[in-house]
C-alpha cells in the first residue's frame, strides 16, 4: 500500500548534515512505501519562538525541498503568530508563491486559543491552506500559556469552521483529546506522538470515525516502520488502513 505521511521533519538539527540529509530522509521514506510526505520544517531549531529571520531560514529549507521534490513533498509554512499580523501575512505570501506549499504549521510559540491566531486563520482561509497545530495534553506538562492542549486546538477549529485543522499527536492528546474533538468536523487528528501506545488509534477511529484520523510519523524523531505499525497493528481492516495511511490526507491536502 502506498502511504502519505502527514507529519515529518526532513530537516532536523540533530542530523547536522544540512540540506543533503533531507534527500536521505526521503529515500528512507520511500523504502517504507511512503510516496509523499508533509514537510513541517525544523521548527524548534531556534527555540520555541523564532524571530522573523529565523522563521524564514526554517521555511527556506522547506521551500528548497518542495521545489526539489515536487511529487514527493508538500510543504507547510511555519509561523510564529506572536510576531504579529504583518509578519504572518508576509511570510504566508512569500511561501504560498511556491507551488506545493499547502498548509501552515504552528508549534509552541503561543497557545492556539490566543488572539494572535486570528491572522493565521484568516490567511489559511484566504489561500485555502490546512493548519497543522501541535497539541499535547497539558494535564502533566503545565505549559498551557504557550503550549496547546487538545481542547485549545479544538476551540481554534470551532472558531474558524472554514479552515481545515490537523490536531497533531494523537498519542499526546490521548483519550481526553479524542473526546474533545468529537463533532468538530473541520478537524482531523494525526497519529504521531510519543511511543506507539496500544489502543489509541482504534479508540480515535471508534469515536471520531475513520475519515478524521490521518497517519503521521513525526520522523526522524520516530521510526517510519513503527509509525505505520501503529495503524496496521490496530486491527482496523484494510479499508480503514488505506483511508488513514493515504486517502484521508490526500483528500485533505487536495493532492492530484
Amino acid at each position: 500500500m502506498t502511504v502519505l505521511d502527514a507529519h515529518t521533519h526532513p530537516h532536523f538539527r540533530e542530523h547536522r548534515a544540512g540540506r543533503a540529509a533531507a534527500d536521505v530522509f526521503l529515500r528512507e521514506a520511500r523504502r517504507h512505501g511512503i510516496e509523499h510526505v508533509v514537510a513541517l520544517g525544523d521548527v524548534l531549531a531556534f527555540g520555541r519562538s523564532p524571530n522573523a529571520d529565523q522563521l524564514r531560514s526554517i521555511n527556506d529549507d522547506t521551500l528548497w525541498l518542495v521545489k526539489r521534490h515536487p511529487q514527493q513533498v508538500t510543504g507547510f509554512c511555519y509561523l510564529n503568530p506572536t510576531l504579529g499580523e504583518r509578519a504572518v501575512w508576509q511570510e504566508v505570501e512569500r511561501c504560498v508563491a511556491v507551488p506545493g506549499i499547502r498548509g501552515l504549521k504552528l508549534e509552541v510559540a503561543n497557545n492556539a486559543r490566543d488572539a494572535c491566531m486570528r491572522p493565521v486563520m484568516k490567511a489559511a482561509e484566504r489561500y485555502g491552506l490546512v493548519v497543522l497545530q501541535h497539541a499535547w495534553s497539558m494535564t502533566k506538562i503545565k505549559q498551557r500559556s504557550f503550549h496547546t492542549d487538545p481542547e485549545d486546538a479544538v476551540l481554534l477549529a470551532r472558531r474558524f469552521p472554514n479552515v481545515r485543522v490537523i490536531m497533531a499527536h494523537l498519542t499526546g492528546c490521548g483519550v481526553r483529546g479524542v473526546l474533545a474533538a468529537r463533532g468538530c468536523d473541520n478537524l482531523v487528528v494525526d497519529t504521531s506522538g510519543a511511543a506507539p501506545e496500544a489502543g489509541i488509534v482504534a479508540y480515535a477511529v471508534e469515536k471520531l470515525g475513520v475519515q478524521r484520523v490521518i497517519y503521521g510519523s513525526d520522523a526522524p524523531i520516530r521510526d517510519f516502520a513503527v509509525a505505520i505499525a501503529r495503524i496496521t497493528g490496530a486491527g482496523l481492516g484494510r479499508d480503514a488502513e488505506r483511508r488513514i495511511l493515504r486517502d484521508n490526507a490526500r483528500e485533505l491536502l487536495r493532492l492530484p
Binding site: 511511543a195 506507539p196 496500544a198 516502520a225 505499525a229 501503529r230
Partner: peptide, 9 residues
C-alpha cells in the same frame, strides 16, 4: 505498546 511496533523496527 502496540505489539506490532516492536518487530516493525
Amino acid at each position: 505498546l502496540e505489539t506490532a511496533a516492536a518487530p516493525a523496527k
